[in-house]
């Protein structure tokens, strides 16, 4: 098979969309935080928490959707911690974010060891199964690629539409965007900047956690250490790539996932002549290139990373 032919197989796009799904959730989560003016570097740790919380709920006998809800709740709690430190207390968002990532990751591993002291190989659960959407899934090619995914993937796409709607079509979204542009404009109109920002970070963190849960409950069926493997950091780049717009960020996530799916197939094709590490590097190198091309003109939220203290100017 030729390297280019890969792009025209439905199975390639099925994989790309599957790889994109957790990125879409987490990117939307990060985008909400940043639009409100808070950089959430806790994303990597919060995804880890979500991956474990969702999986462990199902492993302990809960059903799959309960698992998703528990993951979201756990993410929101870490979001609350992050927001408490960065919003009313105004601490450095970099330091807090990295702290949250380290703390959340370690706490997750610790909990895993406590909960499952005996196991040597990670226990499996019954994950979400692909669900063919009647009608749409019979469209040639596209039906196989897009409309024969697990329900969580559909939820990811719905989330993008919902985030876009809320940000651009509702009074709440207006307040969130203004909080990230000029918080004193929000305060002057009688809305609490702190409430908006804390809320945004909690909701955003919940979405990040669901992104993590996708890995253990849809893409795979068990929890491994290091399984987030830098996906959170990719999402931070995707937000920039998408110029803080949900639609463009979605495209970015799919593009990155396609690179990733492509490099796996190229590895197989190359038959071991080229070191596989080069292929592993490809999506990241291409992402940096895309970032350079697309994001240089991006206008970022003006108050991003600027803590707001009432009465100061």
């Amino acid at each position: 098979m030729d390297a280019l032919d890969i792009l025209f197989t439905a199975s390639f796009w099925v994989a790309a969309i599957r790889i994109a799904s957790p990125l879409i959730f987490a990117t939307m989560g990060e985008l909400i935080c940043e639009r409100a003016g808070v950089l959430n570097l806790g994303i990597e740790g919060i995804m880890t928490v979500g991956a474990f919380a969702g999986w462990f709920t199902v492993y302990s006998g809960g059903d799959l959707w309960t698992g998703v809800a528990v993951a979201a709740l756990a993410g929101a709690m870490f979001g609350l911690l992050h927001a408490t430190l960065t919003v009313p207390l105004g601490l450095s968002q970099h330091v807090v974010g990295i702290g949250i990532t380290l703390f959340a990751t370690s706490l997750t591993y610790f909990t895993y060891r406590l909960a499952l002291p005996q196991v040597t190989s990670p226990p499996k659960i019954e994950p979400f199964q692909p669900f063919a959407i009647p009608g749409l899934s019979s469209i040639p090619f596209l039906g196989d690629a897009v409309f024969n995914q697990t329900p969580l993937t559909y939820l990811a796409f719905l989330t993008v539409a919902l985030v876009a709607w809320v940000l651009y079509r509702t009074p709440l979204g207006l307040a969130v965007r203004a909080a990230g542009e000029n918080p004193s404009a929000v305060e002057a109109q009688g809305i609490s900047v702190n409430a908006i920002r804390i809320g945004a970070v909690m909701v955003g963190s919940a979405l990040m956690a669901v992104g993590g849960a996708f890995l253990t409950m849809s893409a795979f069926n068990s929890f491994f250490f290091e399984m987030i493997n830098g996906r959170g950091w990719i999402c931070i780049a995707l937000v920039v790539f998408g110029s803080w717009r949900p639609g463009k960020a979605l495209l970015g996530a799919i593009l990155f996932a396609a690179f990733d799916a492509y490099q796996i197939r190229l590895q197989q094709l190359s038959g071991g002549v080229v070191p596989y590490q080069l292929f592993l590097m490809m999506p990241y190198a291409l992402s940096i290139l895309a970032l350079i091309l697309v994001a240089r003109r991006a206008s970022y939220p003006k108050a991003l990373m600027v803590p707001y203290q009432k009465g100061e100017r």
Binding site: P171, L174, R177, E181, N182, A185, Q189, S299
Partner: peptide, 25 residues
């Protein structure tokens, strides 16, 4: 001025004038 530069005049004016939980503007 307490204006958000990258938003439109209308968005700046209507900010906070409608209940936050309304589904549409």
């Amino acid at each position: 001025f307490t204006l958000a530069d990258q938003m439109t005049v209308q968005e700046n004016i209507t900010l906070g004038t409608e209940p936050l939980w309304r589904p549409t503007l």
